[in-house]
């Protein structure tokens, strides 16, 4: 290597910005380094962990039994035993809210995962393969989207929860998942289409990269951001959707406890006593917000341009 190496090096100084470099790094590694310094991430993460703990081991947070309701305590205010007071049936609002986390989170997260998985697969295939497969899948999305949500959900949930023994959780999860994936699929499809036409995908094809590498290494990482946003929003919709279904009588049943049920039950009495309505709502809102913040923070961390 005679003079050209020397000449060309002299012509091109380093990048304008950046950290000192050490060994090879990956996008995930860089994302984590970035997340560790993000306040939003830590606030969201702490909230999510608390809610998850609440869902897994409610007894860590309260010793009271949410089903121990005494009509004599009806609408009583907060006291040492019951932080948020009692509802119109004399149940401990705090305990109900804590115990309600489990089914709400279970339904919300599971339904979102089902919808996300369906949306991801359908959107990725439709967008990447194109042609008649795209046409077919896109029409399928249109058909599902055309079903009125409430009507479809009532029919589906009723059909799925015919077993009188079940508490309806599985039925609600499947119902919300099966009806809720369409937006995610649409967003995924258009993001995949715009990513697959990028020059860097062309460059990888030219190197001989197969479809799996193209999708996993090049298209998916660049198409995932809008999808993640849709999912975080969908999580909130699903937690609220469980409440709607429960209120309509096709959701959770028996002695199930959830934020949705609690909100539905407390609604009519809200003028007399607000706490049974307010607290599950606050928990629900905080949970949804925490997941959205978490999604945003993770999405930003995986975008090197924002660093």
């Amino acid at each position: 290597m005679s003079d050209f190496t020397a000449v060309s090096t002299a012509e091109a100084p380093g990048p304008r910005a950046g950290r000192p470099d050490s060994g090879p790094r990956s996008l995930a590694g860089d994302a984590w380094r970035d997340l560790r310094t993000s306040k939003v991430f830590w606030i969201a993460a702490v909230l999510v962990v608390v809610v998850l703990l609440m869902a897994a081991w409610p007894s860590l947070f309260t010793s009271a039994d949410p089903r121990d309701c005494v009509l004599a305590r009806k609408n009583a205010g907060g006291s040492g035993g019951a932080l948020f007071g009692y509802d119109f049936q004399g149940c401990d609002v705090y305990a109900k809210t804590v115990y309600g986390a489990r089914d709400s989170i279970l339904v919300g997260v599971s339904a979102t995962l089902i919808a996300g998985l369906l949306g991801l697969v359908v959107g990725l295939l439709a967008g990447y393969l194109g042609g008649w497969i795209d046409a077919l899948l896109s029409r399928l999305v249109d058909v599902v989207l055309a079903i009125p949500f409430i009507l479809g959900a009532i029919v589906l949930a009723k059909r799925l929860s015919s077993d009188p023994e079940s508490n309806g959780v599985l039925a609600v999860i499947v119902t919300l998942g099966v009806l809720g994936w369409t937006t995610a699929a649409r967003v995924m499809r258009s993001a995949v289409i715009s990513a697959k036409n990028q020059d860097y995908v062309t460059a990888a094809r030219m190197l001989g990269a197969g479809p799996a590498r193209l999708m996993v290494r090049h298209i998916l990482p660049n198409a995932i951001s809008p999808f993640v946003v849709v999912l975080t929003v969908l999580l909130g919709i699903n937690i609220a959707g469980e409440a709607t279904l429960s209120y309509l009588g096709v959701g959770l049943k028996g002695d199930a406890v959830s934020w949705g049920l609690a909100i539905a039950e407390a609604g009519p009495y809200a003028r007399t006593v607000a706490a049974p309505l307010v607290w599950p709502s606050v928990f629900l809102a905080a949970t949804v917000l925490a997941f959205i913040m978490l999604g945003d923070a993770i999405r930003d961390a995986f975008d090197p341009k924002l660093r």
């Binding site: 996008l27 860097y200 460059a203 990888a204 660049n222 995986f302």
Partner: peptide
């Protein structure tokens, strides 16, 4: 092999 026209779109922004 090929060198592409647009240096802004021909490199995957999410790869080092």
């Amino acid at each position: 092999q090929m060198v592409l026209q647009d240096p802004y779109t021909s490199l995957n922004p999410r790869m080092t």
